[in-house]
Amino acid sequence: MADRDPDTIKQEIDQAREQLATTVDLLAERANPRRIADDVKARVIEFVKKPAVAISLVGLGGVAVLLVIRRIRNR
């Protein structure tokens, strides 16, 4: 094994430590519950805004309202 300069070894350790700190910070940001919730909320809103989905939801809502009215009338 070649002899390595202690200063070079220290620099490599410091660089590895910086890379590890950056990686830990990125993982902490990805795992942030508020960010995850915001991402899920944005995806759901984007999905619901699609015309086919919006029309389907309106149709389901209408059927639900009709069923409730029918059930109330049949009492």
Rank of each mutant, 00 (worst) to 15 (best):
M1C: 04
D14A: 02
D38R: 15
A52E: 15
P33F: 10
V53C: 02
R34Q: 14
A52R: 12
Q19I: 02
G59Y: 03
Q11T: 00
T23E: 13
D14N: 03
A16V: 06
T23Y: 05
G62D: 07
D25W: 08
V53N: 08
S56P: 00
S56Q: 14
G62R: 06
R71S: 14
N74F: 08
I9L: 11
A31V: 06
L26E: 14
R4P: 00
A28K: 15
I55A: 09
V53I: 15
L60M: 13
V24L: 09
R35C: 02
A2M: 08
D25E: 15
A28C: 04
D5L: 02
E29R: 15
R17N: 10
R73N: 06
F47D: 08
Q19S: 07
K10C: 02
I55M: 06
Q15Y: 05
P6V: 01
V44E: 09
E18C: 03
I45V: 15
V40E: 04
I45M: 13
R70H: 08
R71H: 12
I36M: 14
E46I: 02
Q11M: 02
P51K: 06
A21K: 12
A2N: 08
L27V: 10
R70T: 14
L66C: 13
V68F: 13
D7P: 01
E29L: 11
A37E: 13
R70P: 00
V68H: 06
K41T: 15
R71L: 12
G59M: 04
R73K: 14
K49E: 12
D39Q: 08
N32V: 11
V68P: 01
D39G: 09
L26C: 05
I9C: 01
P33R: 10
R75V: 14
Q11I: 01
E12W: 04
D3L: 04
P6T: 00
L66W: 07
P51S: 08
I9S: 01
L67G: 05
L67T: 13
V68T: 13
A54V: 02
G59A: 07
N74G: 07
G62A: 12
I55R: 08
Q19K: 07
R34E: 15
G61C: 11
L26Q: 14
A16H: 05
R30Y: 09
V40Y: 03
R17E: 12
R73A: 11
D38W: 03
R17D: 09
I69T: 10
I69Y: 07
A64Y: 04
P33G: 06
G62F: 05
L60P: 00
R73D: 02
R73V: 12
E29T: 15
L57P: 01
R35I: 13
A2L: 11
R75Q: 13
A2F: 08
R35V: 09
I13W: 02
A31I: 06
K49D: 09
M1W: 04
